[in-house]
């Protein structure tokens, strides 16, 4: 017996030429757009990633998860005079759209290693040493407009500058590190990295779960009892 799923072909794009299941029309409509300057005739319901593959656009390699959590497929979008940015895997084709895949953001200019932080009392001072630009926000909204996840980046940066790292970090829960806000910021604040700093110091200094610590202590005692040694190989 040949199993039914062996005849299924989920990844051949034929589904893209079919009408989405919530609509009941029969319009395999052609959408004309350009991607990286290449004219592409795509089908409705294709994302820009699928359209780029379909149109054979060369060297589109900034694609990975295809479900908008990896932040790789940054695109610049031009509709007439309006210019925006988004992630290509969550942007659908439109007639006349000009899309350009953006290169990745260069490595951040701000440096810290979390193991350098030993005293939580001076963490606000350390923050301003590492991210001096964070208090220079001129409220231009560029970061907010560029965020494909709808994060209130500007508000969160203000919270971070005021030392409210937990709340600032929570605002960045859905941040996918596309770093489009970093590209947008005229003050070079690097908001995505500020957000991650806030989340990291919150866990680093405040997350001390009793159930985890209890089990770690149990394991430590067990190891000492079994081996008679006093050192802990995990430090």
């Amino acid at each position: 017996m040949r199993a039914a799923y062996c005849t299924l072909n989920f990844f051949d794009f034929s589904h893209l030429t079919k009408t989405p299941m919530t609509t009941d029309g029969d319009n395999p409509q052609t959408i004309n757009l350009t991607i990286n300057g290449v004219a592409v005739a795509a089908s409705a319901a294709m994302t820009l990633v699928e359209a780029a593959w379909h149109g054979g656009v060369p060297r589109v390699t900034a694609v990975s998860c295809l479900e908008s959590v990896c932040g790789s497929c940054r695109v610049l979008l031009r509709r007439g005079k309006e210019v925006t940015v988004n992630l290509a895997c969550q942007t659908f084709v439109e007639d006349g759209l000009e899309a350009v895949f953006l290169p990745p953001q260069p490595p951040p200019l701000h440096h810290y290693e979390i193991s350098d932080f030993t005293d939580g009392w001076n963490i606000q001072a350390r923050f301003h040493e590492i991210f001096p630009e964070a208090s220079h926000c001129r409220n231009c909204h560029g970061c907010v407009l560029s965020c494909p996840k709808g994060i209130d980046v500007e508000g969160a940066i203000a919270l971070a500058a005021a030392g409210h790292f937990r709340d600032a970090g929570e605002a960045f829960l859905e941040c996918v590190m596309c770093e489009l806000c970093d590209s947008a910021c005229p003050e070079l604040i690097a908001p995505a990295h500020v957000g991650l700093f806030c989340r990291r110091v919150t866990a680093h200094f405040h997350l001390r779960p009793p159930n985890l610590i209890y089990r770690l202590e149990e394991q430590r005692k067990e190891k000492m009892g079994l081996t008679g040694a006093s050192h802990d190989e995990h430090e």
């Binding site: 979390i114 193991s115 970090g169 991650l196 989340r199 990291r200 110091v201 919150t202 866990a203 680093h204 997350l207 001390r208 779960p209 009793p210 159930n211 985890l212």
Partner: peptide, 15 residues
């Protein structure tokens, strides 16, 4: 956690 990863906690602080 030391590297800065957050986890869901209960009201009493357990993971």
């Amino acid at each position: 956690i030391r590297a800065g990863m957050q986890f869901e906690q209960t009201a009493s602080g357990d993971l």
